[in-house]
Design a protein around this nucleic acid. Structure first.
Length: 477
RNA sequence: CGGGGUGUGGCGAAGUUUGGUAUCGCGCUUGGUUCGGGACCAAGAGGCCGCCGGUUCGAAUCCGGCCACUCCGACCA
């Protein structure tokens, strides 16, 4: 065997998780670096994952009545500044366009870091009557935030996302929309991405600039750090007032509508990698894997092998399975390693021996014994195997989350537990000063105030005052 | 933006201390032998050593500046 396998190998995740992550992103051919810091090239295999995420989520949104729109990429400075908290949050990381051709612009424009202001400007024009509500818009686009440092998928200066922006006649309806979309995200992450989530509300310190409430789904990565999977914001009528959006109600009075926004980004791909990946590389949930099965013919030169393998692939494709075949003259071992690196959920091997026996051999990316599958009804069997892989991935991730979430009754307990890796549940008085102290003394941030509350104590361990709620603490990406 | 690390064919590295015109592995190309877990043989192609300037007869190597990537912090989806 080749002695020098280092070139193809990735860093051991238990030795250096961040290096492992970068290795997977590049070696699984998801991403490439561009000449601009923080701006990445999505390679076909990486972009295909995003396309699959898009198509599933987009269908979900539309099922609920949302419509896609596209708004400009540039925001005039005066427009961005209309909502005070909002501009304070985003101005520091805006990129500005100041020239048009050879001429200096009268007013500089920022490249959208998010589109609340643009949506508001538009909504002011199209919302006049209670009959115009609700407005349920969504936009798929890229946004720009001039981050200081960047990492593939997790922190780009330009990243792809969707941003939903909705307007409602009543507070109740807007609040319900915020919850509804949070649940869409949570269900998507759990059922499609096989990533268990904690649903909850952000503290005031952590919430979105300009929002009244920010909701989140938090995930635990393999290294036991936290990643926010998606957010959903309730804005009240704050933006509507700042942008002077009004409608005439059934009562013939002017009202401000109530607003929400919600989004997920390509950062989720980073989450998939860090949740499911292992030392052989990427592991993709079958539901979003660009290649669900790879057919690897064994001893291809032998009579009938290629034909049989091609036929097997056709059968699977006709059954709606995303499959490919590798007819290259690479060795069996090379192919096995290659598709493991790329996280293909199931590898199907077909050689002369199998053909003779009317079977093929399946290797699940999640491990275990290789399975011998009869070629008869093979598509149904393979679908079942894919479902098993999907389920195994979820269960493994769920075990990681539950095994590493613990109750804490003191700052020290949180510090020691979280530094070792994990989420801490701790009671909190609701005072931001205590939250700041947690960061200083335990090195953690509040991930969320989970909907699923437990009473694990009466007082806030930081200040000793009566506790209001339980908070999840952790170290986040 | 603060602290560290690294820039040498596509990738990973050696060479830098002690200046003398670039070496190795992988990959790539062509032909052949192989083929049930990272195959083998043979012949090839490919580099103004991150960029700019300085010292020198001569710079990958010494000096100055800049840039990029990366890790750890602060900030964020």
């Amino acid at each position: 065997m080749a002695k020098d396998k280092k070139v193809e190998q990735i860093t051991d995740m238990d030795v250096d998780f961040t290096q492992w992550y970068t290795d997977v992103c590049t070696k699984a051919e998801l991403i490439d670096y561009s000449s601009i810091k923080g701006m990445f090239i999505y390679r076909p295999y990486g972009y295909a994952i995003w396309e699959n995420i898009q198509s599933i989520l987009d269908a979900e949104f539309k099922k609920l009545g949302h419509q896609n729109v596209y708004l400009p990429m540039l925001i005039p400075e005066s427009l961005l500044q209309k909502e005070k908290d909002h501009v304070e949050g985003f101005a520091p990381e805006c990129a500005w366009v100041t020239m048009g051709g050879a001429d200096k612009l009268e007013e500089r424009c920022c490249i959208r870091p998010t589109s609340e202001t643009l949506f508001c400007e538009h909504y002011k024009n199209v919302i006049h009557s209670w009959r115009d509500l609700p407005k349920l818009y969504n936009q798929w686009c890229s946004v720009l935030r001039w981050e200081k440092t960047s990492r593939p998928f997790l922190r780009h200066r330009e990243f792809l996302w969707q941003e939903g922006h909705t307007m409602h006649a009543t507070e109740e309806e807007a609040r319900a929309e915020t919850q509804r979309m949070l649940n869409v995200y949570a269900d998507f992450m759990e059922n499609v991405l096989a990533m268990p989530v904690i649903r909850g509300r952000k503290t005031d310190k952590e919430k979105f600039n300009g929002a009244e409430e920010t909701y989140t789904v938090e995930c635990m990565m393999h290294d036991k750090k936290a990643l926010q999977g998606g957010t959903s914001h309730y804005f009240g009528d704050g933006f509507a007032r700042a942008f002077d959006i009004t409608y005439t109600g059934r009562d013939n009075q002017l009202h401000h509508p109530y607003q929400t926004s919600w989004g997920v980004s390509t950062r989720m791909i980073g989450g998939i990698i860090m949740t499911h990946g292992d030392n052989s590389g990427l592991v993709l949930p079958p539901k979003i894997a660009p290649i669900q099965i790879i057919v690897v013919p064994v001893a291809m030169h032998k009579e009938g092998v290629q034909e049989a393998a091609g036929k097997l692939l056709e059968t699977l494709k006709n059954a709606g399975i995303r499959g490919e075949i590798d007819l290259s003259d690479q060795s069996m071992g090379w192919k096995a390693a290659q598709y493991e690196m790329k996280g293909v959920p199931v590898r199907l091997e077909l050689g002369p021996r199998d053909i003779e026996n009317g079977v093929c051999v399946a290797a699940k990316r999640t491990g275990g014994e290789k399975l011998t599958l009869p070629l008869e009804n093979v598509a149904d069997t393979v679908k079942k195997v894919l479902e098993d892989v999907q389920k195994e991935m979820y269960e493994k991730a769920l075990k990681n989350l539950t095994d590493n979430t613990f109750d804490a009754h003191s700052v020290e307990e949180v510090r020691d537990g979280c530094q070792k890796g994990g989420f801490a549940r701790m009671m909190w008085c609701g005072d931001e000063a205590c939250e700041v102290k947690m960061k200083e003394q335990a090195g953690v941030t509040s991930r969320c105030i989970p909907f699923d509350q437990h009473h694990i104590g009466d007082v806030c361990p930081v200040c000793g005052k009566p506790a209001k709620q339980m908070v999840i603490w952790g170290i986040a990406y």
